[in-house]
Structure formats: C-alpha cells, structure tokens
Design a binder for these strands. Structure first.
Length: 768
DNA sequence: GTAGGGTTAG
C-alpha cells in the first residue's frame, strides 16, 4: 500500500493487477525509482539504461514514459539513454512516442535508424521507411548491412525500380552487395519481385557465400514468373552444392513442378521433402497438394489434403482450385460449404475461385449467394473477387448486373475488362463491347489476345463484319502480338457466316498448319450457305486431321440434308453406322424450384406433357402473329413441308420454355434454359420473338406472362449475323434485347414483318 | 536492441 501511495505521490498511473507477480515487479520498479529519486547522485546513465531494460522486458509503455520524464528531469537524455529509450518505445509498440523522441534526439545511433526503418517496413509503411533512410544519408550516417537488407523490401513492395537500383548502387560502393549474404539475398528478392530475373541472377552469382535463403529467393522469382526450367536448374545446382533445401524452398519448387507438369520431378522433390523431415510444414504441404493437382492427380491432392489436421484458408483454397482445375466444380462447391462449416473464413482468393466454379456451371442462384458473401467481406470492389462476379453474371446472361458490378470496381485491369467485353460479346451486345474496348485503350490498358478474341466474338455475334475485319487487320499489321488460330477461327466464322466464303477459305490457308477447329468452322459456314463444293474440300482436310471426328460426319450429313442431296445423306449415315457413331440427342433443361426438368424432342415422358403441348400450341400462334415463320431448313429429315414444320414445334428448347412459362408466375422475368448442343436456328428466332410477347395471365386460360426475358444458354456459340439494323429506333431496342443475330433470310423476313406490325419504319440491309 | 526467402484467385 505504501508503494501505491508513493506512486500516487509521484503522479504515476499504476494498475492494480490480481497477479501477485506483476504487483511485486511493479513495486520493485517503483522502489528503484523512488530510491534513486531520493538519492539523486546514483541516477546515472547505467541505472537509467537498466530501468529502460526493465521497461523493454515488461513491455510497459507507462514505465517507459515515466523513465523518459525522469531522464529529462535529471538531464540524462543523452546518446545512450535516448537511443535505448526509442528502442523501448518501439518494443512497446508505440510509434507516436518513438517517432517523437527519435526526432528530438540530438544524435541517433545507426542501430536506432535501422530499428525505425525496419519497424516501418514491418508495418507496411514502406514510403516512410524510404524517407527515413534518405534522411539518414543526408544527415551523414552511412547505411550498413542491416539498413540495406531491410530497405530493399520497401522498394520492391512499392515497385520503385529506380529507387531500388539507386540503393543497389550504393550497396555496391560500400562493398555490401557481394560480401553480405543478407544484403545479397534482399537485392535478389527485390529484382525477382520486379520481374527482373536477369539482374536477380547476376547479383546472386556475385554473392560470395551463397546460402539457402539467397537461392530460394531466386527460385521463387523464377517460379512466380513462369520460368520453371530455370527454377529447377537453380534447385538442382543448390542440391549439388550440398545446400539443403528448407520448407521455403520446397513450397516454391513444388509449384514449379506442377507448372511444368513434370510428375517425376515432383515426386522426387516430394521424396526429398520427406527425407528432410519437412513433409508436415503447412505451406510446403499445400504446395504438394497443388503440384499433384496441376499434374492431373487430383486423388493424390485429396490424399494430401486429408493429411491436414486443421487446414487453413490457403490450404482450403488450394483444394478448391485443384478441384475446379480438374473439372470437379460440383465437388469444389460442396467442399466450399464444408470449409465454411468448419469456421474457416474465405478470402478474395477463395471467393473468386468458387465464383469461377459457379460461372462454369452457370449456377446463378448459388453464384448470387457467393456475391452476397463477397459484399459481406467488403470485397465487391476488389479486382479479383469483383471481376469474378462480373464473369459470373456475364456467363449467366445477366449483362446488366455484370456491368453494375463492373462499374463499382476501384481498379481496372486487362482481365476485368476482358470479362466485361466477353459478357457483351456472348450476349450479342456488340457495340457496347467495342465501346468498352476503346475505353480500355483510353485508360491506357493494353489489350491482350483474350481482349481481341472477345471483341472479334462480339463482332461475330452482332454481325459487325466490317468492324471485325478492321480490328483483325489492325492487329495483323501492328504485330504487337501474334494472332492465334482462335483469332483466325473467329474471323473465318465471321466472314463465312455472312457468305464471304472465299475470303474465309483464303484466311484458313494463311494459317500455318490449320487445325481441326479452323476447317470445321469453314465447314459450318459452308453448311449455312449450302456450299457443297467448298464443304467437301474442308471435309477432306478435317478427315485427314481426325478421321473419326463424329461431329464432322453429323455436320456433313446435315449439309447434304439441307441441300436436299438425300442420297449423300444416306451414304453419310451408313458410314456413321459403320463407324458406330451415334448422334447425341439434343436436350434442354430448366430449373424450376430447385428441380431440374429435362426435355428431348418427341419425348413425352414428362408428367406434364399434355399441358406443355397446349401451352406450346398457344405460344406458337402468338409468335406467328409477330412474324414467326418456321424455318424448315433446320429439319434434317426427309419429309414434307407440313411435317417439317410440325417437327420444329416440338424441339426440346420449345418444350422446356413452354413448361417453364406454365410453372412460373408474373414475378419471374427470366428463364434460364440449358442445352447440351447448339440451339437450332429456328428455335433461336422463335425464342427471340418470344421475348417480345406480352401475355397477361388473365388474358387466356393459360398461365402465361412473358414481359421481359433473358435466356441464358449453356452453349451460346450460335454466331454471326448477316443482318444489320439501321436507324429505326424499334429495331435498335430490339437488337439491344437480342442475344445474337444469326443470318437467315427467314429471320430477315421475320424482322421486317415485326417492324411493320410494330409500326416502325425499319430499313434492313441484308449482307450476303 | 536492428536484417534476407514461401503456399491459394479473377
């Protein structure tokens, strides 16, 4: 009690703690102070430093402030005490006090400068650290090995290449670059983080005594910049030199093994890791999981995962990514639920990966729930999670939602731009795609191969032939990057579908070793235009490359059918029979109240078949009023015209939509239709007209209400347009709501008739 | 009293 009283007298704030030991310590400390205060001559530098040491050991800011006050009072705030006190403040975690005292000191030890710099870097305040370092030099204090080994990290984190180079120069002058491995490895790491691997390697070669940290920094650099070969080479040399790899090295080199998909080396490294006793270190084991997954051995990844007692956020995410990259999206989604149940929180990596799974499966409802999680974690403006949400909505046909999420992003890069452009492209909104492409360039973002492919796809799906040609030629002439076969295939499709078949064929021949996709694209275009002769040339090439290609036989048989060459159809079908081909039946499915309903043409096994047929009959009549003309060219069997029309009515797409409309109420504005094959041209036109029917439920006996509909498709590869709208407003509105335009004369007639019915003065150019 | 390297994503 006496001590507490004394403390109060001395204006000291003390905390009465239940722990006896703490009270005892406190009392001893106070006794010391009081004794020294009474007996002034015994307060000297040594005793002050000893007191400060106690502050450090107890991590007590209160005591440090108390000693500080005494040091001032007794005029002892000199070099030793002052510098030691900054250390105490720093260890107590109080940067305000530390910095204030540090700035007030008449002179600072190098060690204090270093501590301050290191502290700022540890707190992520890299600019502050660099400023302090510059001030130190300007005050005539030369940096030492400690200063350099810290400060290079600040330059690399800020991406200050020139500053980093300048500091590197200074370390050379002071002889620290080569002689000190701490400095050397920090420089290597810095250049590696800048992606300047040549410079990193040169420095590493110069450092006198190489150790595992230095070489690991080099390996990590090569791994992260995709140079697996060099990473493996450095690793091999390291082992030969007798330098043992540690958990950091294994974590990185296993990623390289996965990247180069070299299972034998991966297994060898796994063996080394076990031999080193580092198999259970979390980060290395996580890399092991990734290595097996990238080598395609997902079961081994699962085995590694099951070995974790308490998988962390990164391990869980690695597992999800492994599953998704091995085509097991559904399993990944169920594992994600497991992760959440085990109270491991997802981060941006996790959510963007899971969203990727939802996008691939077009699972909009689950995707929306994950979007909600993204918002809950404040990641909706994060460029990774945010752009994954953009991709989700884009892939599911909700371009407006995609755009609204896209607009909220803080930072744009080429990937987020590509997602948005692709979303416009696949939903047939070509002009918006092109607009965004120009905006991207205005923002100074360099388009890449994917961007160009997306814009070309947009041109395909919106019939913007001239725009597509212009872009293709400009890239070809610019030679900023090489156009791939995919770009060529896109152009062949664009030209071919609008009837410029000769140009398309020339383009195919321009490609060195044209592949299956290119010839098949040309073949498809030939099918649209009934161009048998060129088709046969393309067919020869396709069969040379892939004699058993089922799709091609089907395509060719369909071409002969649409050209009315029934003899060849019979011949083709018999070849297919001989080769035991079976055409995949076209299927469509819709999800209503979490239940999936699947339909096939001519299959009446669905319990509601009768009602579906009634609804469909009514819908077809309504759509006919809008100008629907059944396009019997899509009937590939030899039958009379009336039979052909009837067979078109019962396509699986139409059955599924009729069913969905019966089962949903007025609140449903969107029906998502999934298909295993490309939608047929007739259904395509029919669906587009359907989206403009406005039928009220009470108008008929049937529960029909279609106001505004978007049809998201699993296979949206229906491409190319030969139709172009002109200024007529109604057509513009219509085009905006359309998915794609495809190029059939029947559709042109449909559009004209619709425009007429709606009272619009439309002019339509048909490009053939 | 001060210092260097790792694993997951769109």
């Amino acid at each position: 009690m006496m001590m507490v009283g004394l403390a109060k007298l001395l204006n000291l704030a003390i905390t009465i703690n239940n722990t006896n030991l703490l009270i005892i310590n406190h009392c001893r400390f106070l006794t010391f102070i009081v004794q020294n205060s009474i007996n002034e001559p015994s307060f000297n530098n040594t005793s002050m430093c000893s007191l400060i040491q106690q502050c450090i050991e107890n991590k007590s800011l209160t005591k440090a402030r108390m000693v500080h006050a005494h040091a001032i009072k007794f005029g002892l705030l000199g070099l030793n005490v002052g510098n030691k006190l900054t250390d105490a403040y720093l260890k107590c975690g109080c940067i305000v006090d530390t910095r204030k005292l540090f700035d007030e000191l008449p002179q600072r030890y190098l060690i204090s400068w270093n501590s301050m710099i290191s502290y700022y870097i540890g707190q992520g305040k890299c600019k502050e650290a660099i400023l302090l370092c510059k001030r130190m030099v300007s005050e005539g204090v030369l940096p030492d090995n400690f200063t350099f080994s810290s400060v290079f990290k600040a330059f690399s984190e800020l991406g200050f290449v020139n500053g980093g180079r300048e500091a590197h120069g200074m370390s050379i002058v002071l002889g620290l670059e080569v002689l000190n491995k701490f400095v050397g490895s920090a420089i290597v790491d810095m250049y590696a983080k800048f992606g300047k691997m040549k410079e990193a390697h040169v420095v590493a070669d110069r450092v006198m005594s190489k150790d595992v940290v230095l070489l690991t920094a080099l390996i990590v650099g090569y791994t992260q910049h995709g140079d697996g070969e060099k990473a493996l080479k450095v690793f091999g040399e390291m082992i030969r030199q007798g330098i043992n790899a540690n958990e950091y090295t294994f974590a990185s080199i296993l990623i390289t093994c996965g990247n180069v998909e070299d299972l034998s080396i991966g297994k060898l490294v796994h063996g080394l890791m076990v031999k080193s006793g580092l198999e259970s270190v979390v980060a290395s084991k996580t890399s092991l999981l990734t290595m097996y997954s990238r080598c395609g051995l997902i079961d081994d990844s699962l085995k590694v995962f099951n070995n974790f007692l308490c998988p962390n956020q990164v391990t869980w995410t690695s597992l999800l990514v492994a599953l998704i990259q091995n085509g097991k999206e559904e399993v990944a989604l169920s594992k994600f639920k497991e992760m959440i149940s085990s109270s491991v929180l997802p981060n941006s990596f996790t959510l963007s990966s899971v969203l990727q799974a939802c996008s691939s499966l077009a699972m909009l409802e689950l995707g929306k729930q994950i979007h909600a999680m993204v918002m809950k974690f404040g990641l909706d403006r994060d460029k990774y999670a945010g752009s994954a949400v953009v991709n989700l909505y884009g892939k599911c046909g909700s371009t407006e939602m995609a755009r609204s999420v896209f607009d909220a992003l803080v930072e744009y890069d080429v990937v987020s731009m590509n997602f948005m452009i692709y979303s416009y492209a696949q939903n047939g909104i070509g002009h918006e795609a092109i607009k965004l492409f120009h905006k991207m360039k205005e923002l100074g973002l360099e388009p890449n191969e994917v961007t160009i492919l997306s814009v070309l796809l947009a041109c395909n799906n919106a019939g913007l032939v001239e725009e597509g040609c212009q872009l293709f030629d400009s890239i070809k002439n610019n030679q900023r990057f090489e156009l791939t076969r995919d770009h060529y295939a896109c152009m062949v499709n664009l030209l071919g579908r609008c009837g410029r078949l000769e140009e398309a064929e020339v383009l195919v021949k321009q490609v060195r070793n044209p592949d299956l996709v290119l010839w098949r694209t040309l073949l498809s275009a030939c099918k649209i235009h009934g161009e048998v002769e060129m088709a046969e040339r393309a067919l020869k090439q396709v069969l040379d490359l892939s004699p058993d290609d089922e799709g091609t036989h089907v395509l060719m048989s369909n071409l002969y059918a649409s050209a009315g060459n029934w003899n060849q159809v019979i011949e083709m079908k018999s070849t297919m029979r001989e080769m035991k081909f079976k055409k995949n039946p076209a299927m469509s499915w819709v999800e209503i109240d979490k239940e999936v309903h699947t339909f096939m043409a001519g299959d009446w096994s669905h319990p509601s078949s009768k009602e579906i047929l009634d609804t469909l009959g009514c819908l077809i009549e309504k759509v006919k009023i809008l100008g629907y003309i059944p396009d019997t060219r899509f009937v590939l069997q030899n039958m009379d015209e009336e039979e052909k029309k009837r067979s078109l009515y019962y396509h699986s797409e139409k059955l599924a939509i009729a069913f969905a409309l019966r089962k949903t109420n007025n609140k449903t504005t969107t029906i998502r239709l999934f298909k295993n094959l490309r939608v047929c041209g007739d259904c395509h036109s029919w669906i587009k007209l359907m989206s403009h029917i406005k039928l009220l439920r009470n108008e008929t006996q049937m529960p029909l209400s279609v106001t505004k509909q978007t049809f998201g498709m699993r296979d949206q590869s229906v491409g190319a347009a030969v139709l172009r709208s002109d200024q007529a407003e109604i057509i513009k509105i219509w085009l905006r709501n359309l998915w794609h335009l495809d190029g059939t004369l029947a559709e042109a007639a449909t559009i004209c008739k619709t425009a007429e019915i709606l009272g619009a003065k439309a002019r339509i150019n048909i490009i053939l």
